[in-house]
Nucleic acid binder design. Sequence first.
DNA 1: CTTTATCACTTGTATATACAGGATGTCAAT
DNA 2: ATTGACATCCTGTATATACAAGTGATAAAG
Lengths: 239, 239
Amino acid sequence: MKKNKYKHIYEELADKMKSGTFQPGELIPSEHELAARYETSRETIRKALTLLSQNGYIQKLRGKGSVVLDTSRASFPISGLVSFKELADQMNGVIQTNVAEFSLIRPEPYLQHQLQCSVKEEVWKVIRTRTFDGECVILDKDFLLKKYIPELTKDICGQSIYAYIEQELGLTISFAKKEITVEPCTDEDVVFLDTNGFSHVVVVRNYVYLDDASLFQYTESRHRPDKFRFVDFARRHMK
Amino acid sequence: MKKNKYKHIYEELADKMKSGTFQPGELIPSEHELAARYETSRETIRKALTLLSQNGYIQKLRGKGSVVLDTSRASFPISGLVSFKELADQMNGVIQTNVAEFSLIRPEPYLQHQLQCSVKEEVWKVIRTRTFDGECVILDKDFLLKKYIPELTKDICGQSIYAYIEQELGLTISFAKKEITVEPCTDEDVVFLDTNGFSHVVVVRNYVYLDDASLFQYTESRHRPDKFRFVDFARRHMK
DNA sequence: CTTTATCACTTGTATATACAGGATGTCAAT
DNA sequence: ATTGACATCCTGTATATACAAGTGATAAAG
C-alpha cells in the first residue's frame, strides 16, 4: 500500500462518491485540505482530482472548488473497457454465458485485416452467447492472437477472459477502439440469437491493445437492438 | 500566444500526427528533448503528452518513449462532443440542414425530467433534419434552457448552435453524457425522415453541461440505422 | 560464447515553490 | 443602501528537483 499514492486517493474518493458519502452538488474539500488530510503534496491531490474529473465524478470550478457530479443517472461505469462479466455484475436478472465454439485457427483475409496480422499467425476463435432471462440476446465473437495468449481453455472462456489475461498472464490491457453500427442479421445471428423478429443487430467492433500498444484482440459483439444500451461520458478538451 | 503553453504544444504535436509528420509506430522525441525544443519544463511537456495519450494519439512506453498510434483507421475525432457541423466538415457528400421547427416552449413533464428543470423554465425547442445525398437520415431535437441562452434565432440554428454559444455568448461547453439505444420509429420519425423501410431508429440522447456543471441542453438525435456510426477511444485507467 | 553487471536514457511518481486569476465576503467610503 | 477596494479563499499554470523503475546497449566476467 505504498505505491501509486494518487491512484489510491482517486479510488478512495471515487468510493465516497459511489457510496453517497459525497453527495452530488456538494463541494469536496479543497486541494490544500485534502493534501493535509492525506499528508501529501497538492500536486499529488491534483492528479487524483484530474482522474476523477476525466471519469465524470467531479467538475472543477476555478475559484470555488470541485463539485460532485450526479453519476447515478448514467449507471456507471461509463464507456471505457467494460467486459461482459464486469457489466453483468451490475445488472439484475439471470445471466448466462455459453461457449458455442472454441478453436485455434488461421485467420482468413478479413480477420488478417482486423487483427493486422499475417495468415501464419495463430488465432484463438471464441464464440459465446449471452442469455438474459432465458433470451439469447448477445453474440460475442472473440479473436485473440496466440502470440500473446499462449494458453487458453474453453473453461476460461466460460468465465472471464480479461480476468485470466490480467491476473494469470500478467498482461496489461491498456486501451481500445470501438465502433458501433447497425447491420442486417447474418445467418449466424439467426442461428445463435433469439432474434425475436428483429432484422438487424447492433454490432460493436472492439480493437483491444496491450500497454505496449500491440493489438492482441478483435471482438465483434452482436446485440439484439432492444437489449442494447451504450453510455458514454465525454469531456470537451481544449478550445 | 502566451497562455496555455501545454495546450499549444498539444495541438502542435497533434497536427504533426494528423499530417503525417509523425508516422504511426514511430517514437516521438523524448520529454527532455521536447522540453529543450519548446524551451519549457518537462512537466509542461508531460501535460501535453498526457492529453495526446488520452485522446488516442500516442501510447507512452516506460523506459522507451512515446509511440505514435494509428489514428487513420478510426477516422478522428473520436467520441467526444462532436457537433453535427464539425462532423460534416470531415465527411464527403452533400449535406443539408433544415430547421423544421423553432419555438420557445414550457417543458412538459418528460422534458422537465430530462433537463432537470421546473415547468416555469423557458426552453428553446429546435427540430432539425439532416440530409445526406438527398436522403433525410437524421432528426435532431434540441432543447436549450433560455436561462443560459437568452437569444436564439432560426438563422443561427441553420448554422451551428455550438459555435454561437461558444463564440458569441462566450459560454464554455465542458462535458456531456451520451446514451445510445435503438428504438421503434415514432410518428414524428416517419414524418420527418426517409425511413426507407426501417422500423427502428438509433437514438442518441445527449446531456450537455457548461463549465460550471450546469445542464443547459438536452438533445435527442435520431438516426436511420444504416447511416449511423459511432467511434470511441477508451483508455483503461488504473488497475 | 554465454551470462552478468553496468550505464545511459527513457518515463513514472512525489514534492516544493511561485504567481495568475476567478469567487466570495468584509468593511469602509460614498 | 449601494458601491468599491481589499483580503482571502479557491483552482490553473509553470518551473525545478529528486528519485524510482523499465529498456536497451555495451562492457566485463565466467
